[in-house]
């Protein structure tokens, strides 16, 4: 390989010469030598600026709590991938890639906030009025309100409300927190009115609101939240690599393993004979005509 860039691109993010690497105008080594933190560097990378101290504290708080969440889809995929013993980065990459529409949908929440805040501005109504509309529109349509509820922490994610409080304590409250708090107020009121159980704000609702207030775009916020998790998932994968059994199916372990045959519960078509090649064409035509297979199509 030569030292030329692998893609020819105009970029506003960084450049690298034989002498230095420069991100958003700052020499990375000068940043490190001056004592700026990795947290500060997130602001440089995604916002072209160095943060105020309280902003740095808020992001450090969030990234600290985002990092580890024990048994979640991300850690589960890291463990599943490493059971085949590929290189470690494969497991870490898989863990980051689990974040989507259900697990940590931070970008979507950010876009939702921006869309409704803008609509409130255009219509000249208060954020509280717009929050009520958001809740009513979503619940009337049978849609989940992003940022509310967590399937494991059924009394509320232990990180969420403290994040809101830290957001306030550090003097960083703005339109995003005001709007999110209003969403929560109307969400709780509506569920109570309908006699439904309490569902608390989750880490998207709390954490992503703070990230938006800190000036991160929906995708930047999502990246920060999800990639943090890659760190802990690497630790989970390493634990399994060092102390677990490869393949995760050993009969020699005292505990039934994740991929033990007994873990399979099959609910598909009943056992059936394989048709011979002579029977095949007629069999296939009949199967297609009867259409019973359609209930199994994925």
């Amino acid at each position: 390989m030569g030292r030329e860039a692998l893609l020819q691109r105009k970029t506003a993010i960084s450049y690298k010469t034989e002498e230095k690497t420069v991100v958003r105008g700052y020499d990375l080594n000068e940043l490190a030598e001056a004592g700026y933190s990795f947290i500060d560097a997130m602001f440089v990378l995604y916002q072209n600026r160095l943060p105020a101290e309280n902003e740095e504290k808020m992001l450090n708080y969030e990234m600290g709590e985002f990092m580890e969440h024990s048994m979640s889809p991300s850690a589960a995929s890291a463990n599943a991938v490493i059971s085949g013993r590929p290189y470690l980065p494969a497991a870490v990459a898989a863990s980051v890639m689990t974040f989507g529409g259900a697990h940590g949908p931070g970008a979507a929440h950010g876009y939702m906030l921006n869309k409704y805040i803008e609509q409130a501005r255009v219509e000249g109504i208060t954020l509280d009025e717009m929050a009520k509309r958001l809740v009513d529109e979503h619940l009337d349509a049978g849609m989940a309100v992003m940022g509310m509820g967590q399937p494991q922490h059924t009394d509320g994610d232990p990180r969420a409300e403290p994040t809101h409080l830290k957001h306030e304590e550090l003097g960083l409250s703005g339109v995003y927190l005001e709007f999110q708090r209003s969403i929560e107020k109307h969400f709780h009121a509506r569920r109570k009115k309908e006699g439904r159980k309490y569902v608390a704000v989750n880490m998207i609702g709390a954490g992503n609101t703070a990230l938006a207030e800190l000036g991160f775009s929906p995708n930047a916020a999502w990246c920060i939240g999800c990639v943090c998790r890659g760190m802990s998932c690497a630790a989970h994968a390493l634990f399994n690599m060092r102390k677990g059994r490869a393949w995760a199916a050993s009969k020699g372990e005292a505990m039934v393993q994740m991929l033990d045959l007994t873990m399979i519960k099959y609910v598909g078509p009943a056992d059936r004979e394989v048709p011979s090649q002579e029977e095949r064409q007629e069999y296939a035509k009949k199967q297609k005509a009867e259409g019973e297979y359609k209930q199994w199509v994925l």
């Binding site: 709590e65 969440h69 922490h153 059924t154 634990f239 994740m258």
Partner: peptide
């Protein structure tokens, strides 16, 4: 044998805590 459980030296969580 004991049923499958998420075995970890790294972290656990319950309804109210995340512990690393």
């Amino acid at each position: 044998r004991a049923g499958f459980q998420w075995v970890s030296e790294v972290a656990y969580k319950n309804v109210h805590r995340i512990v690393s």
